[in-house]
Amino acid sequence: MTPDDLALKATQAMWDGDNATQHLGMTLSNVKPGQATMSMIIRPEMTNGHKTCHGGYIFTLADSAFAFACNTYNQRTVAQMASVSFLAPAYQGDTLTATATEVWKQGRGGIYDVQVTNQHGTKIAEFRGHSRTVKGTHLPENPE
């Protein structure tokens, strides 16, 4: 099995159990080893008193892209730490896209950067996540 095939199969196994991501209407459009791209349309209930997207939803989108990117190796991996910088507001009806890219991976740890943009290509947020592998895999040890 190629690394790309493994990434797709591990991602599908994780997606099947990810109720939060699916409930928020996120879609996964690209997966490769150490990379993932997810999108989400901002719904009315995701806006705050300023009529902009609540930052927690932007963080959640970035965190989900991060999660899928760092789980592409069929090793269960969780967030150890994450931070976000909000750069511009997002509004109801906007389609936000989070693109996660592996920056560094060694042993049980990894660092991933996620850029969140809107449908016009405007940067909305920058997210950095630190991952940590835990016991277990998404697929059997020798998936075919």
Rank of each mutant, 00 (worst) to 15 (best):
H50T: 14
F86D: 10
M26C: 13
T27K: 13
Y73E: 06
D4M: 05
Q12N: 06
H23M: 08
G17W: 11
R76L: 01
K135R: 14
G107F: 15
H130S: 13
T72E: 02
P143G: 10
Y91V: 03
I111R: 06
G136F: 12
A98D: 04
C53T: 09
K135G: 13
R43W: 00
M81G: 14
F127L: 12
T37I: 15
T60W: 07
T52C: 10
Q22H: 14
K105T: 02
E141P: 11
V31F: 01
W104P: 02
H138R: 11
P140E: 08
A82T: 07
T27I: 07
A79G: 15
N74M: 09
Q12D: 12
A82N: 09
A90N: 02
A67C: 07
M26Q: 08
E141K: 15
V103G: 06
M1H: 15
D94F: 03
Q80L: 10
N142F: 05
Y91S: 04
Q119F: 09
M1I: 14
L28K: 12
S85Y: 05
F66K: 03
Q106W: 00
A13M: 14
R128E: 02
I58K: 01
G107C: 15
Q80T: 02
L6V: 04
C53V: 07
W104T: 09
T77Q: 11
V78I: 07
A13L: 13
F59P: 08
Q106E: 10
L8C: 09
V78G: 00
V114E: 07
D16Q: 14
T77V: 13
G109P: 01
K51F: 06
A100L: 14
T37F: 03
R132D: 01
Y91I: 03
E102I: 03
E126I: 08
N142H: 11
L61K: 08
K9A: 12
Q75P: 01
T60L: 11
T99I: 08
S29N: 09
S29K: 10
A10D: 03
T60Y: 09
H120P: 01
C53F: 02
Y112S: 12
T21G: 11
M38W: 00
G17Y: 11
N74Q: 11
T21W: 01
H50C: 11
T99E: 08
L87S: 07
L87A: 07
L96M: 10
E45R: 00
I42P: 06
Q12H: 13
Q35S: 11
K135C: 03
D4L: 08
M1W: 13
M14F: 15
T21Q: 08
H23T: 11
T137M: 06
A10Q: 04
T95D: 04
Q92H: 04
N71F: 06
L139F: 14
T77H: 05
E102W: 00
A125D: 05
H50F: 15
T99A: 07
G17P: 05
R128V: 03
D16K: 15
E102F: 01
V114W: 03
